Amino acid sequence: MKETGSAAQPAGMDHAPSDRPAEQAEGHPPDLDGLFDLHRWSPSGFRAVGPNIGTARLFGGQAVAQALCAAGRTVPEGFRANSLHAHFLRSGETPGAVEYRVEIVRNGTTFATRRVAAVQQGTELLQLTASFHRPEPGLTHQTAVLDVPDPESLPTPEESLPDARGREWYRGIRARFPFDMRFVGAPPGVAAGTTAPPRHGVWFRAREPLGADPLLHACTLALVSDLFLLAAALPPHGLRMGTPGMLAVSLDHAVWFHDRAFRGDDWFFCAQEGSWAGGGRALCRSTVFDRRGTLVATVAQEGLIRVGPQSAR
């Protein structure tokens, strides 16, 4: 991580909005088709011309998802995303166009590999490596089990949030992200002051139909995979995102895509857990299921968490 000057921002990107008032998220959330409709200005160069998800800083999940989209537009037909690994280098700003520069690393018979740099105003924000696999038959099993209430049986966030502060928090989320949500247990952005286990769960569903392109559904999952994840490390410490004097940003992010039939416009569940925290960092994981209980993805993320005076360093 490189920092220059007293006002330098640490490496990393904004992630789940937490304690920001709804009025900072103006208008309606961008539609997913618009987010992933990248302008191709060269065979391996793309530019995001639509709106950015974010307040002052670009949401890291958007950069990851758009980089995956750019990479996927350069692979042969019939290949599906099977993994991505991203490192956040600098904070992106909103508004501001982001360019995605794709390097073709490998085109194999069954696997294709791409490397992507996300650049804003000449500054590299993110480096991402993505792997694509041509589907083939193979062994099948999973050990993870989905054991939560169906989304239809849960109250909407507007119905379940207990106070005005919580409802304001969710209005900010809804204004930025084009997803329906149902929380299992306490929502990750409002619980604070008491300690709790480092885990929470959220059902997600895109509000609009996404069509048949499997890349669009994979990018939708990549976008959501960064939402609320780092917040899972905070409950044991009685903290929440947006706690005064706390800095929390994503450092690196990985997604493994398991199920090629996944759809982001049907309900899917993210079981998020803060596995470890120490030395200013935290490691969080997420297992993602479709509503039938099929494990569709596994996510891991390391984040920087600073509390108190060191948060300004």
Rank of each mutant, 00 (worst) to 15 (best):
M1K: 09
A16W: 07
E23G: 09
G27N: 08
G34I: 04
W41S: 11
S42M: 09
P43G: 02
S44N: 12
G45I: 00
G54E: 02
G54A: 00
A63I: 01
A63L: 04
V64F: 04
A67C: 01
G72A: 05
R73Q: 14
G78D: 05
R80H: 12
L84T: 02
L89K: 08
R101D: 11
V105R: 14
T109E: 15
F111Y: 11
A112F: 07
T113F: 11
A117Y: 13
Q121C: 13
G122S: 13
T123I: 12
P135W: 11
P135D: 14
P137W: 03
G138D: 12
G138F: 09
H141G: 07
Q142A: 10
V145W: 10
L146Q: 07
V148P: 07
P149Q: 14
L154C: 06
T156W: 00
E159H: 07
P162A: 14
R165Q: 14
R165D: 15
G166V: 05
R167E: 02
G172W: 04
A175K: 11
F179L: 15
F179T: 08
F183R: 11
F183Q: 11
P197H: 14
H200P: 05
R207W: 10
P209D: 09
L210M: 13
A222T: 03
A233D: 10
H237E: 14
L239Y: 04
M246K: 10
V249M: 03
V249T: 04
R260C: 07
R260N: 09
D265E: 03
F268W: 11
A271F: 02
Q272M: 15
R281I: 06
A282E: 03
S286E: 13
T287C: 10
T287Q: 15
V296W: 03
A300P: 04
G308I: 13
P309H: 01
